[in-house]
């Protein structure tokens, strides 16, 4: 009887957005009288930080600091239609809608600035700090604060924009299944190291090294929180979780967190996250949806590591001590 060590690898891809498309999201952007910007959506922030990302996307596109953007969302009286927050679609779909709306607002903003500065709008650029400058002559400038005041009180312009993003729906061909499930895919490769106690069947995940390719890390800190959380969830799926432990038997289902097993802080592996960025052609600033895929590769990586450690295949999830011990017993009997 011994603690046996093994490692396993898995590589995966994952589609961004609702399968087969046809999932619209709209956005509205407008400026306040003093040049702050309001993004209006009906998308839902599930705790992953969607509002923050939409603010950064709007700020980047208009050319102002993020703290000058406020996001109002998840209200059907004020926000235009969003299909919902699911299918790794929030950043990709709503982000593209926000970019389109922000571009339209930026154009009006530049036109008003051009009138104030008596130049062509196409000769203007933003400095990202709240000012609009004449290209090549930065001493000639106007603040966005003043541009907004002018638009509201002097020029009678609405610095605002409408955004819409829709991937046309694809219908699978009946006989061949020819279809377009998605326009872009995130990628991952995970290596997991485990220790298996061949007496108790208990698995300890020692390290998980994840490489994720996500198009563009729009906010690296938020990417990290999502990827680390996903990696933990993957381990949890591999080793612990089910509402029906003896499926298809319906008995023994957990009804609270005492009975429904999930890893606690002491069960979490040393986790490494490495991010690659290959911008997607149709993503907002190249972003893909990493929200779902980051929880997938750990499951097979752990399963393969268990085999590497003790030489038995557990092809049924979750990989419980009971299943490992039964497999070891069957292996010994052969």
């Amino acid at each position: 009887m011994a603690i046996r060590r093994g490692r396993g690898v898995a590589a995966i891809n994952y589609p961004t957005g609702m399968n087969l498309g046809g999932d619209p999201t709209q956005a509205l952007v407008h400026s306040t009288p003093t040049g702050n910007f309001m993004v209006t959506l009906s998308s839902v922030d599930l705790g992953q930080g969607m509002k923050q990302i939409m603010a950064q996307i709007c700020a980047e596109t208009i050319g102002v600091p993020t703290d000058r953007v406020v996001v109002d969302t998840a209200d059907t009286d004020t926000g235009p239609h969003c299909m919902g927050t699911f299918a790794s679609r929030g950043t990709h779909r709503a982000g593209n809608a926000v970019i389109q709306a922000a571009r339209e607002a930026r154009q009006v903003m530049l036109e008003v600035a051009a009138e104030e500065l008596e130049v062509n709008a196409s000769d203007l650029e933003t400095d990202g700090q709240g000012n609009i400058l004449v290209k090549g002559a930065p001493q000639k400038s106007i603040s966005i604060f003043d541009v907004a005041l002018s638009a509201h009180f002097k020029r009678g312009r609405s610095i605002s924009g409408r955004g819409m993003f829709l991937i046309p729906r694809s219908y699978p061909e009946k006989e061949t299944g020819a279809m377009k499930p998605s326009t872009c895919y995130a990628h991952a490769c995970t290596v997991a190291e485990v220790e298996v106690d061949d007496e108790t069947g208990e698995v300890t995940v020692v390290t998980v090294k994840n490489v994720f390719e996500i198009g563009r890390a729009l906010n690296p800190k938020m990417v990290e929180q999502q990827l680390v959380g996903g990696s933990w969830m993957g381990i949890s799926h591999a080793l612990y979780e089910t509402t029906e432990p003896y499926y298809p038997n319906r008995d023994h289902g957990g009804t609270d967190f005492n009975q429904y097993l999930m890893p606690g802080p002491g069960d979490l592996a040393e986790t490494e996250i490495i991010v690659l960025e290959r911008p997607s052609a149709d993503g907002p600033y190249g972003a893909k949806g990493p929200g779902e895929m980051c929880a997938n590769p750990q499951i097979p990586a752990v399963a393969n590591a268990v085999f590497d450690a003790v030489g038995v295949r557990i092809d049924t999830l979750p990989i419980t001590p009971e299943r490992i011990l039964r497999a070891l017993k069957a292996q010994a009997a052969n």
């Binding site: 898995a10 995966i12 994952y14 299918a87 996903g230 779902e292 997938n296 499951i299 097979p300």
Partner: peptide, 14 residues
Amino acid sequence: RGFGVTIGDFALEV
């Protein structure tokens, strides 16, 4: 999370 794919990836990668 991972609808239609997560379990498939487990199967494919094992």
